[in-house]
Design a protein around this nucleic acid. Sequence first.
DNA 1: TATTGTTATACTCTATAACTATA
DNA 2: TATAGTTATAGAGTATAACAATA
Lengths: 190, 190
Amino acid sequence: MSSEPTIRVPADFEAEFPGASRSASEVAANLSRTAAAFVSAVERWPRETANLSASAFQTLAILEGADEPLPAHVIAERLIVRSASMTSLLHTLERRGLVERHPHPSDRRKILIQLTDEARRIVDQTLPVQHAVIAAAVGDVSEADRERLITTLATIWTRLENLAERPLPIPKARRKRRTPAAARQARPTK
Amino acid sequence: MSSEPTIRVPADFEAEFPGASRSASEVAANLSRTAAAFVSAVERWPRETANLSASAFQTLAILEGADEPLPAHVIAERLIVRSASMTSLLHTLERRGLVERHPHPSDRRKILIQLTDEARRIVDQTLPVQHAVIAAAVGDVSEADRERLITTLATIWTRLENLAERPLPIPKARRKRRTPAAARQARPTK
DNA sequence: TATTGTTATACTCTATAACTATA
DNA sequence: TATAGTTATAGAGTATAACAATA
């Protein structure tokens, strides 16, 4: 497929899109592609060995990390899903014997979600693989470059957080470039 | 939520997971979070102004970029989806009046997908906003750092491509650390 | 009144398998 | 035989709205 080591953007890009930045768009494209490959690599093990989706495994990992049963709404907050979605996710995990619902001892509105031993085994096997995959993926990058990368990513992330709270920007007009195909179409058809 | 500028991993991490790398996992965590924020920022405009999902807008953008009608299987290849998923995507877009199906003039197995004027208007308005959002997000990063970032991402991506073709690794045993909660549970309950 | 969780419903996206028609 | 596309079906994920039980 697109097996170039870096994704680059054509030179006339900023002429076509006033307000755009060629280098910024190259950052965005390469960042998205690398992160997608990262996520796919990390999700591979739980999917192929335990048939667990990303959300499903994340639910187990959250419970394992908490080291104690959690009420459903707490897991929902950490996963960033609605309570109705959480109910359905927990239903799937319960059917597969990976979590159990228990009544909360003092607040009878709540249910406490507890991992089964099988779920704990899955998490214990999956986390080392995921971390090993990550270590391998970053293996060719020096420690100094890792630190630089983390810092630059943090700079971008902070800006994105601010942007998310602002209203949508007003579009600037695009100056469409003439592509060979468009020129072909524009030419009188004989 | 997790509004720290950088995500960091505890110092005892490598003791718990032999074969893992603390700095690599920090790279992975920060990369995933920043990329997710990027994708969410870029998908915001087409979703909020035209109610278009990422795949739906991508389909329109591919057609716009090609500058000529494309057969369905070509779009499916570029989107990396199965032909059946493409059919359903195109059905949704057709219902919304954004694409039209036309018979291929010479190969009667094929259909040519063409953008409507409304779809072209949407793409023309969306692309400048997306590129402006990207330029704003990366605005605080110097040109030199952008280039370094792209290079480092390419290094990681190349490794991930190789890893994807290999069989799954064998998990190394985890050395569970004692968390406060676990210690509490382990202690005799009085 | 607010919180917790469930049910019902719907829509998107993706996937597989069986199928038609065309090359 | 291989290719292009559709239909049928299924499942995961997310969303909203109405609801019951409890605080």
